[in-house]
């Protein structure tokens, strides 16, 4: 029962994160939204694994936690590596 409430809250927040990812306006907002979405997915999978009574789903949650962190780093590296040709348009991003 309470688990369902938590899962619903998570889904609502995930929808909010998607909205922020589409709205932008800067690229950092999108990164933030994707990061938020990822963390909420980890939690959602963990909660759903208890609702469904399938604890082996927790492995999937674990790998998400991992992937989420690495994507953020990859994105940041992408910016800093190509700083000369990429960064000048930050902020004017449509």
């Amino acid at each position: 029962m309470i688990l369902t409430v938590v899962a619903l809250a998570l889904i609502v927040v995930m929808a909010m994160a998607i909205a922020r990812a589409f709205l932008g306006p800067t690229i950092y907002d999108r990164i933030l939204a994707v990061n938020l979405f990822g963390t909420k997915t980890v939690l959602l999978i963990a909660v759903v694994s208890y609702i469904a009574g399938r604890p082996d789903f927790l492995d999937v949650a674990l790998i998400y936690a991992l992937i989420n962190f690495i994507s953020v780093i990859a994105v940041l590296r992408f910016f800093e590596y190509g700083s000369s040709k990429v960064n000048d348009k930050v902020g004017k991003d449509a």
Partner: peptide
């Protein structure tokens, strides 16, 4: 991957997590 989890396909979700999102 969340869809796959909801459909009880843990292995597919795992692959999607590692490949599609990672």
């Amino acid at each position: 991957a969340s869809f796959f989890i909801l459909m009880d396909a843990a292995d597919v979700a795992f692959t999607e997590a590692a490949v599609g999102a990672g």
